[in-house]
Computed example of a mutant assay.
Amino acid sequence: MPILEQMDFMEKIALSIYSKRARMYVRLLKMKCNHIDLRLEDNRVEMKVFFDNSEELKVDMDTNRYKVDLRYGNDHFFWWPGTLSPIDYVLSIMDVTHCKSIKKLTFSRVSDYDPKYDALIPLLTKLPKIDELIVEHTTSWSFSPESPLLKVLRIIFPVTSAVTISDQVRIPKYLREIFQGNFDAVSLRLPWNVKGFSLNDWEFTNAKTLKLAGPAVEIEDLNRYFKLWMKKKSNPRLENLVVQTHGNITKDLLLKGLNAVQVPIRTDRSLEVLGSIKQYHSDEEITFEFDITRADGRRATISISNHGLVCFYVWPFRQNQSSFMRRFASFSSFYNSCIEHFK
């Protein structure tokens, strides 16, 4: 152990990969990372390990077992791994840095003609937890029922908290499985020349946060969804909905039948919504805000931006006070006012 403590960081990482017994000793050094990102592209696995001191360990692995590269600051190691697979390196580094999950897992580019996922399956089946799954540069075929990509994604859906899909998915019905998945956050983007999502595609999504860019939704469908929420017939987990609409927003059509009340635009009310808006346009700003309240007292805010973006934020539910508590609160207020008067 004294010898291990004198090694520099790269030597410790390289030693941990050498054998399970070596990894057991290196793990006792309690090196802790901030988070880990994985990026998968063709036959390459790119791993980035981020630390609190702003340092970063980069690991490039070839699934064909050609070469492994480690970079940390000015240090650079590389070797030919022999019979080891990328899973041995990824899990070993996660173990010695005491990392329990992957922050971002990105599928960078998907080949329509010759997708190669067989070498990645052993890695994906052993990842314990993934905070966010990101799929970039997709096509409609990528999510069709026969797609090899979809079969691979189904392996990691059960351990994923959030899913982000970039554009080029031209057939919205292929994404219904993601809408209905048990995720905390779902973010989807459609090409501008695609009609968009119908209400049947997303009205029963299970996500707490749902973002649809594109434009992705008709104003009439959005109004119908708000009415379902008023009747408690929509997703009960929904906390935040951000959608891009077709054309200019007509307030009368969007808010028809909702008994919406216009409220002043305040930064403390719109802080979370504004954070979502900024990812679409740098000059995005809220022009109107309306509150709607359903029969059980649950309140939500509908925000309309100057770029056709509609944000829907559900406020935390507060149970009605009992009659005793209301009387106690009234008595307490009266008592305090009397004390202040005599002071």
Rank of each mutant, 00 (worst) to 15 (best):
V68C: 11
K231S: 09
S276R: 14
S187M: 05
S333F: 10
M94S: 02
V110I: 15
S140Q: 14
M10T: 06
S147Y: 02
I265P: 03
A22S: 14
K233F: 09
S147G: 00
V45T: 13
L38S: 06
S305N: 09
S101P: 00
S147F: 07
N240W: 02
R65H: 15
D112L: 11
R21D: 13
L124T: 03
K227T: 05
G196P: 02
R269W: 00
L40T: 03
W229H: 06
S330M: 14
F157N: 02
S54V: 10
D291K: 00
L153H: 07
I178T: 05
A216K: 09
N64Q: 14
P128T: 09
W79T: 12
N43M: 15
D114V: 10
L255F: 01
T63K: 07
D88G: 09
E285F: 08
P148N: 03
S323M: 13
T250P: 06
D167W: 10
N64W: 07
I36S: 06
Q262N: 09
I286Y: 08
S111T: 03
P86Q: 02
P115M: 08
P2T: 13
D184L: 14
V243N: 08
I165S: 04
W315Y: 05
W192C: 13
N248F: 06
L84M: 11
V152K: 11
V49I: 15
A216Q: 06
K208M: 05
I102N: 09
S323T: 07
W192D: 14
F328T: 10
F78L: 10
K104M: 12
R71D: 07
R266G: 05
